[in-house]
């Protein structure tokens, strides 16, 4: 599970430091899909990068399976499957080679690697292109390879940054179903998107963020009750507006 506690990230800027993530706190439990929802630049990727230990938090912290991301990076990384938004793959290698490479880095034994690849290739329907060079694959095929690569070591926690971006509906649905299966196996999934429908379909809980801060947290039914609105987009905009009003009233 993931526990985020007042996590902040500031990037030094010429005039004034810029907070990409600002005192974010939430949790994601075992067997739960939590969606980070926010517009472009809201701070979703930055948050996920901190959780996966490639960025250091400026303040606050988080734990993954009980390990602090600030000083137990190695333990965190080996329990994490991380898929970043603009993930690349080694274009001269084949999916099987890439997946095997990462599995070995995670200390998975070779016979288990073979089994896992067969399993994942079944679920994600990758059998036809497992041994073709990445160069020759389509965007959707590559995304499947990326997903397989990031969870080959069967991690208890999965962090997926916009895994369906740029995919057609069939492939996107395929992947969403796969994530559901993972959840049912008891994994903790943190998933980011700015597509409201997707968030609705997949999420147990939604964390709406805007300009690095939390707007609202809960399930869609909570949000609907809370705002009295039915359209997802309207709900999101409602929350965005309400905070900016607060800011205005704070300022006066």
């Amino acid at each position: 599970m993931i526990k985020v506690d007042k996590l902040s990230k500031k990037f030094p800027q010429k005039e004034k430091d810029f907070y990409a993530v600002n005192e974010l706190s939430f949790t994601a439990d075992k067997g739960e899909i939590v969606v980070l929802l926010g517009v472009n630049g809201a701070g979703k990727t930055t948050t996920m990068r901190m959780l996966s230990t490639v960025l250091k938090p400026s303040s606050g912290t988080a734990t993954v399976e009980g390990f602090d991301i600030r000083n137990k990076a190695q333990q965190v990384r080996s329990r994490l499957g991380f898929l970043s938004g603009d993930t690349g793959l080694y274009s001269r290698l084949t999916p099987r080679e890439i997946i095997t490479y990462f599995a070995r880095l995670y200390d998975v034994r070779d016979n288990i690697i073979r089994e896992r690849i067969m399993e994942l290739s079944d679920v994600l329907d990758m059998g036809s292109f497992l041994d073709k060079k990445i160069d020759l694959l389509s965007t959707g095929m590559k995304q499947k390879v990326s997903i397989a690569r990031s969870i080959i070591h069967d991690p208890p926690v999965m962090i997926l940054d916009e895994p369906t971006a740029g995919l057609d509906i069939l492939t996107a649905r395929n992947i969403v179903e796969f994530i559901h299966k993972c959840k049912n196996q008891g994994k903790c999934v943190l998933f980011s998107t700015h597509i409201m429908r997707e968030a609705e379909r997949i999420a147990d809980r939604i964390v709406m963020i805007h300009e690095g801060r939390i707007l609202a947290e809960g399930s869609w039914s909570d949000f609907k009750k809370d705002t009295g609105l039915r359209d997802l987009d309207d709900i999101f905009i409602h929350y965005v507006n309400s905070t900016s009003e607060e800011e205005v009233s704070d300022g006066s």
Binding site: T53, R77, D86, T87, G88, L105
Partner: peptide, 17 residues
């Protein structure tokens, strides 16, 4: 080259030190 192709992040989050 890995930065350019977006693969660097994938090995940075792997279990390799």
């Amino acid at each position: 080259g890995e930065k350019e192709r977006g693969t660097l992040e994938t090995i940075l989050v792997s279990a390799a030190r």
